[in-house]
Design a protein around this nucleic acid. Structure first.
Lengths: 196, 196
DNA sequence: ATAAAAAAATACTAATTAGTATGAAAAAGC
DNA sequence: GCTTTTTCATACTAATTAGTATTTTTTTAT
């Protein structure tokens, strides 16, 4: 990777971490260039504005991560019910990057940036639609294979699962411990089993 | 009401509206005093800091509203299943103050202010705990009356309902229309019926 | 009515913000 | 080599921020 591409990625990664832990609005460019050891000239060479950098984070950091960790595994799934549960459980309890007190990066950005920044909204909506579509697809396959009841509506379930995930992430932030996650996961399992 | 108490409440109400639509961090005190037509001297006479005002909004605006609209009706409920659905449906589709694109005020504040401001976290947690406890109570009553299965765990269901609500609010913000609400509500109904 | 206290008005500060102007160094093309 | 383009560094600006100091007005108590 070229040196220039490296500084750009470095900015995106460090900025993303700061934004994930502190929020977008309260993360200043001065802070970003301080932690990246990159000068302001370099920053504004790579990004015209702070918002352009924000959108780049979504497209170049969040999107690939999501593709790799959520989309691919879900597409490869043979057992949707069990794998949905495992996916959510992994995200809540085991993912080494995500932390209870900081919530879900995508959820945080959605909450903070919509509806005031259309570029953010569009980039985030694209992400979420992708995830949703994958879940719906997985449900339809599950129905074919007789693993899921025929009267289950994929879109409804997808919304339900993702909403629950985003919401419980907010509870986690509020209480700063994973006890709410554990209670939530039990009910999620029960709900998912009801789809069989 | 005394004139002083009136300016205080006026500040709280207007500030709350601004914060609900714009977010806490991006709502400046200058903006608040401009829309309230109150001077900075008056503002800082009533509130030592911006954060103190924020907490006052939670305790003096959000909490009473919640008591009146969610807690009381839920306590009076004879049919938990149906009333849970009606409560969420009302909040999502009919409440005249809440707007799709601005999400849930409590959810927004939780997302934006935790874990960085403990006073906010505590005040918000108190709110949410109250709501949660009321739901749990209602479920237990429902179990007594034979309206809800005995093996249903109240706390799990409460977390599940509230998480779903917070989460779908985020979807609403993202898409800025209530189509996701409608899909979500169908699955909520189906889920709640599964508790019978 | 008047003194005391509460409430509000005005003018300011120091820090931080995103963004710019300009020039220097590094890399690439020939 | 030398030129051109890319990449980065430095020093700045203008606006906005939360909060303060000080004075004036209004209300309350006696």
């Amino acid at each position: 990777m070229s040196k220039a591409a490296n500084t750009r990625l470095n900015i995106l990664h460090k900025a993303f971490e700061l934004i994930y832990t502190k929020g977008y609005q309260t993360t200043s460019i001065d802070e970003i260039i301080a932690t990246t050891q990159v000068t302001k000239g370099a920053f504004y060479y790579h990004f015209k504005t702070k918002d352009e950098m924000g959108v780049a984070i979504i497209e170049e950091i969040l999107k690939p991560t999501m593709q790799e960790h959520f989309i691919k595994p879900t597409e490869a799934s043979q057992n949707p019910i069990e794998d949905f549960y495992n996916m959510i459980s992994y995200l809540l309890l085991d993912d080494p990057f995500l932390q209870v007190k900081y919530g879900c990066p995508v959820g945080n950005l959605t909450q903070e940036m919509t509806p005031w920044n259309n570029k953010f909204s569009e980039a985030l909506a694209e992400l979420v639609d992708l995830w949703k579509a994958t879940i719906i697809n997985s449900i339809e396959k599950g129905k074919e294979y007789g693993l899921i009841r025929k009267d289950v509506v994929g879109e409804q379930v997808a919304f339900f699962i993702l909403s629950g995930y985003w919401g419980i992430r907010n509870f986690g932030k509020l209480q700063n411990d994973n006890s709410s996650y554990l209670v939530y996961l039990k009910e999620l399992k029960s709900y998912l089993n009801g789809l069989k």
